[in-house]
Design a protein around this nucleic acid. Structure first.
Lengths: 310, 310
DNA sequence: TCAAAAGTGTTAGTATTACACCCATGT
DNA sequence: ACATGGGTGTAATACTAACACTTTTGA
């Protein structure tokens, strides 16, 4: 193969040759000659890890409601992975931006506007779909609390309670380098179903080269590599709540500071001290004149967000 | 279109119909019937923002060498964007993982092993390539200092000095929400060329919905949306050097603490105080018994990394 | 002797952590 | 009265930023 050919259209991959001789073409001629259907291509899908927070009444009237972190999953009706649970997704249309595809899916699956939508990762292992080569671009999406409702006809959709806990965290030094392995357990629960998945995150340093990878250790209920995507989404959620203050995308317009703290605790999966938490978020919220006063204890003031991005 | 058809293979996009009737098929039958070439698909490329650090002797023997952050660009020989500079990239082969494609490109363009390779973002605006629909998955890659050499035949490749400075940073409150606009200036310099590009990052909050986007304000020298990719890569580099300690991927095996500080200063684009910097990184390095003693001042001890991931 | 950089110490201010305490409400 | 959560204060500690100073080398 000539050098000239190799550099055609950036450089080409060995398996999808681009047999175009384009030297000395004008841009117009080039475009006319270029035929995109000449080459084999992977398919591209968008998959969405959609989270929200839900309040469930606790039996006791004195006690506060309990909060749950929720993830939307879809039961697959067809092969492959028939009957397993998958993230809502879709192929990307030729005439829509990647992000438009994500918003389209959100509209199809939910009744309310998406508060937050951010790209997570492009999953491109060649064996991740047994049918054909599919690259999936995953998104992290958040709905405000109290937006659990779904369009009525989507029987296969289900909101799962989800939580992720670190099962083990080992780091070892070998003669050739260092290695960290973290195993996370993800628990999924809804009315009829409850299951558990184990995902390992590896960071390996060998001869000065860093490699990071994720592996599914145990999963009999989720489709494709969606266990990895979900674990990755939860890890991102934890980062973003600390550095980028995305908690406000999960909160209603007005809220109590305890409700806000509960959301932090849910996502970080750890208890926080009230006084310290309030000092930490003080500059991001402002008082309203409203109170939440139905419970059998001192009414709590409602707050709203200000300076979300500072 | 029937509901049944719509749900075929997750759900489909409106523009690339999947006319398969797969009810009641076994997985094997399904795979035989499924023909991936039946649908129009976007092309997928991988583009790499490859950085390294270079030391250039300062005229004065007393003074230390000057450090530069380097980015590898490739002059396009063909339309579109002929003569402009682009990130090295390639189409993704049908039989290679996304990350394999990235490693393949690295091998083609560089003579030394990549110390660090991490996915940045999947760029999917439908007009980003004037020829056809191309989705580009970009990677951030780092080479160790002293690895500037390229395979001899790649005349179109060039290492540019690069630096990014914040030009403006405005936040405004409107009646409908908040808005932050940050303009960054990227300066590119190599022997024969020198140019400047302006990229704006917007974070807009409107009616409880957050949108983040990047826009090219001024660019006559880079191809496609690569100015955005490069700005994004530099932003990521800044985050990662603070939280994930990726500086060590740019350093040689042994180095002086001043060299390490210079790398931090290059990437963060700000001066740091020596004493404070040393306390901060103290737990990540350990002394060796070697010294760098060629210069006309007190010789400095060489260190190496330990606990890179803590 | 001097320029240049290596390397260390001190202090003030700020942020983080853990804990203790009082307040307001409906039952 | 009391269970429950709302709300605040304090003290110990750790971290950070800024600056000043001493040491070592080759020219």
């Amino acid at each position: 193969m000539s050098k000239k050919q190799e550099d055609t259209i950036r450089s080409k991959s060995p398996k999808s040759p681009l047999p175009i001789q384009e030297d000395l073409l004008t841009e117009k001629e080039f475009l006319e000659q270029y035929r995109s259907s000449d080459y084999e291509k992977p398919s591209v899908t968008v998959d969405i890890a959609l989270f929200t927070v839900d309040e469930e009444a606790s039996g006791n009237h004195r006690k506060n409601e309990e909060k749950k972190l929720k993830l939307l999953l879809m039961r697959r009706e067809h092969h492959p992975f028939k009957e397993r649970w998958a993230l809502p997704g879709s192929f990307v249309g030729m005439e829509e931006d990647l992000e438009d595809a994500a918003r389209r899916i959100m509209k199809e699956k939910t009744a309310v506007p998406t508060a937050y939508l951010d790209q997570l990762y492009a999953w491109g292992e060649k064996e991740r779909d047994p049918r054909l080569r599919i690259i999936s671009v995953s998104y992290l999406a958040l709905l405000r609390q109290g937006c659990l409702s779904l369009p009525g006809d989507k029987a296969s959709l289900c909101w799962f309670d989800i939580d992720m806990k670190r099962l083990s965290n080992s780091s070892s030094h070998t003669d050739r380098g260092e290695e960290i392995r973290q195993v996370d357990v993800l628990c999924f629960t809804c009315e009829k179903n409850s299951f558990e998945v184990h995902v390992e995150t590896r960071i390996i340093l060998e001869e000065g080269i860093v490699r990071r990878s994720m592996h599914i250790l145990k999963d009999e209920y989720l489709a494709f590599d969606h266990a990895k995507i979900i674990a990755h989404a939860l890890q991102r959620l934890r980062q973003r709540i600390e550095y980028d203050n995305i908690a406000f995308c999960l909160m209603p317009e007005e809220f109590t500071l305890t409700q806000l703290q509960q959301v932090y605790e849910l996502i970080l999966d750890q208890k926080l001290l009230k006084a310290n938490f309030r000092r930490k978020i003080a500059s991001m919220v402002e008082e309203t004149d409203n109170y939440k006063k139905d419970a059998a204890h001192r009414p709590s003031r409602l707050y709203r967000f200000v300076n979300r991005f500072s």
